[in-house]
Design a protein around this nucleic acid. Structure first.
Length: 224
DNA sequence: CACCAGGCAAGTA
DNA sequence: TACTTGCATGGT
């Protein structure tokens, strides 16, 4: 591991935590709520996700069995405010089917298996990609894996810590190989990166008030 | 009006 | 492998 990179990441974390404080992620009271939220928030504002989650709660549908029993068209209607509601209804059903068929409908049983097997199982579901899988592993299973998102790419690039097109796994390794293997640290760090991205990187393109401004260029980057 | 949000998969070359 | 496109509501 690169001690310089490690120091830089730790300084970055400290500055963000001092600036923003604990983010209390994942917002959600149960494991199933975290899992469902992870799917619904794909390329979608969290506020919209909350409305869909409220719909499910109101109908007492926010459980593996509740979601399994609900017909696809009905589920799609409940998810409407979260956007992409047809595709997300299918994706949720795909995940629920995995839990029903491979873990006897027991979410906890799925989450308790070793991280590598869990990740493989999640990625086998159509509609669950790397970020969604890792979010479920970190925030629902509470296992130490680092979640990479678009903000992570943008911020690390802007601060000169990566080349132009690092892969998801490149960035994930950068964090995991240079930080203590601590799920609570990974939890807070990812949440702080999202907070920083939402608050500063867009509204203040040159990051003039960004607590990370001391690190390198802040030129914008277009990235998915 | 434009642009984006805590992605992902499928299609094309 | 490397692009491109569809999916969609709601906020700024």
């Amino acid at each position: 591991m690169n001690t310089l990179t490690a120091q830089r990441l730790q300084d970055m974390y400290q500055l963000l935590f001092e600036r923003f404080g604990p983010q209390h992620w994942w917002p959600g009271e149960t494991d199933i709520e975290i899992v469902v939220g992870a799917v619904l928030t794909q390329n979608t504002n969290w506020k919209n996700v909350e409305k869909a989650l409220a719909n499910l709660k109101r109908g007492r549908l926010l459980s593996v069995q509740g979601l399994d029993s609900l017909p696809l068209p009905s589920l799609a209607e409940e998810l409407r405010p979260a956007g992409y509601y047809n595709i997300k209804a299918k994706r949720l059903k795909n995940l629920i089917r995995l839990i029903m068929e491979s873990y006897e409908g027991d979410l906890d049983r799925m989450l308790k298996q070793p991280v590598s097997t869990l990740r493989e199982a999640l990625l086998s579901v159509n509609g669950i990609g790397r970020e969604t899988a890792d979010s479920i592993i970190l925030y629902a299973a509470r296992a130490p894996i680092f979640v990479v998102d678009a903000y992570t790419h943008r911020i690390l690039y802007r601060h000169g810590m990566t080349d132009e097109q690092p892969t998801y796994e490149d960035l994930q390794a950068l964090f995991m190989e240079n930080l203590p293997d601590d799920p609570q640290l990974f939890n807070e760090f990812h949440a702080l990166i999202v907070k920083t991205g939402k608050d500063l990187c867009r509204t203040v393109p040159r990051c003039e008030i960004c607590p990370l401004r001391d690190w390198g260029p802040t030129s914008p980057i277009n990235r998915s």
